[in-house]
C-alpha cells in the first residue's frame, strides 16, 4: 500500500487502489465529522467554550505534550491499569482454572463469586474510600474488582467446555495430567479466556476513569476533572480522546495475541484454503 505500489502497472494499479480504498473506508466517517465540526466551530455555529474546534483540541494536546503533563498523566493511569489488570486478571485466571478443573473448588467458590459478581463494583466506591482512603490502593482495588469477574467467568467456562473427547483421547494416548493441562485444556480454553480479557480491558479503563475522577492527583481522570474546574473544554475533550485511543490500543493488542495464539482456528486462517 506504499506509493511505490500505487505507481505499478495496469491491473495491479487497480487492485492496489481498491485495497487502499478498503483500508481507508473505516476512516471516512470520522474525517468527515471532524471537518464538519471544525467548520461549525469556526463559523460560530457552536459555542467554542462548550465545544472547541478540533484544531483547538489538537493544540491543547500539543501544549500538554510539550510541558510533559500528558505523558505523566498517561503513565500514571497506565500504571494503575496494568497493576490492577495483573492482580485481578491473575486472580481471575487462577481461580477460574481451579473451579473449572476441580469440582470441590467449584462447590466452595463459585456460588459466592456469582453472588458478589452481581454487585456493580462501582457501587463499592464509598466503602473502598472508607477502607483505603483516596490513595493508589483504592483505585487499584477497584480495577482489580472490575477485571476479575470477566476473566474468572470466561476461564471457568473455557475450561469446562473443552472437548471431553479430546481429553479422553489424551488419556488413552498416555498423556499425564500436566501434559493434558498444557496441551489440551489450556489451549482449548484460550479462545474463551481471550474473550474475557478483551471484556476486562474495557472494564479496566471504565473503572479507572471513574476512580480517577473521584479522587486523584494524577492520571487522565484527574487531568480532565482539573480542566473542568478551569473551564478548559479543549483539555477535557483531549482526555476523552486519549481514553479512546488507549482503549483501541489495548483491543488491538489482544487481537494481535488472538491472531498468534489462535492461528489453528479456522476463523483466523486465510480464506480459500479449502480441504484438498
Amino acid at each position: 500500500m506504499s506509493i511505490g505500489a500505487l505507481t505499478g502497472a495496469g491491473a495491479r494499479h487497480r487492485v492496489d487502489l481498491a485495497s487502499v480504498g478498503r483500508a481507508l473506508a473505516p476512516w471516512a466517517l470520522p474525517i468527515v465529522l471532524l471537518i464538519a465540526w471544525e467548520i461549525a466551530a469556526r463559523a460560530g455555529l457552536v459555542n467554542a467554550r462548550l465545544l472547541p474546534a478540533p484544531s483547538a483540541v489538537a493544540l491543547a494536546g500539543w501544549r500538554s505534550l510539550l510541558d510533559g503533563t500528558l505523558v505523566a498523566n498517561v503513565l500514571a493511569s497506565g500504571q494503575r491499569a496494568l497493576v490492577g489488570l495483573a492482580i485481578g486478571g491473575g486472580l481471575g485466571f487462577v481461580l477460574g482454572l481451579a473451579t473449572g478443573l476441580w469440582r470441590p473448588a467449584e462447590t466452595l467458590l463459585d456460588s459466592t463469586v456469582q453472588m458478589v459478581r452481581n454487585v456493580p463494583h462501582l457501587a463499592l466506591i464509598p466503602l473502598v474510600i472508607l477502607w483505603f482512603g483516596i490513595g493508589e490502593t483504592a483505585k487499584i482495588f477497584l480495577v482489580v474488582l472490575g477485571v476479575f469477574f470477566p476473566i474468572y467467568i470466561n476461564t471457568f467456562h473455557g475450561v469446562r467446555t473443552v472437548d471431553r473427547q479430546l481429553v479422553e483421547m489424551a488419556e488413552v494416548y498416555g498423556l499425564d495430567a500436566r501434559a493434558r493441562l498444557w496441551r489440551i485444556v489450556l489451549p482449548g480454553a484460550l479462545p474463551s479466556i481471550l474473550v474475557g480479557l478483551r471484556y476486562a480491558l474495557g472494564l479496566m479503563w471504565l473503572t479507572l476513569i471513574v476512580a480517577e475522577t473521584i479522587s486523584a492527583s494524577s492520571g487522565l481522570g484527574y487531568m480532565t476533572m482539573n480542566a473542568r474546574e478551569f473551564f478548559q473544554t479543549d483539555v477535557v475533550i483531549l482526555g476523552i480522546l486519549v481514553y479512546a485511543l488507549l482503549g483501541k490500543l489495548a483491543d488491538a493488542a489482544t487481537r494481535a495475541v488472538e491472531r498468534r495464539a489462535l492461528a489453528w482456528h479456522p476463523a483466523w486462517q486465510p480464506s480459500g484454503e479449502e480441504s484438498r
Partner: peptide, 21 residues
C-alpha cells in the same frame, strides 16, 4: 484405540497430533 471420530487436537499441527505423547 481408534475412535469413531478422528479426535485430532485442532491447535496442534498434524505432526504434533501424531506425536501427541
Amino acid at each position: 484405540l481408534l475412535f469413531q471420530e478422528a479426535r485430532l487436537v485442532p491447535w496442534q499441527s498434524v505432526a504434533q497430533n501424531v506425536g501427541i505423547a
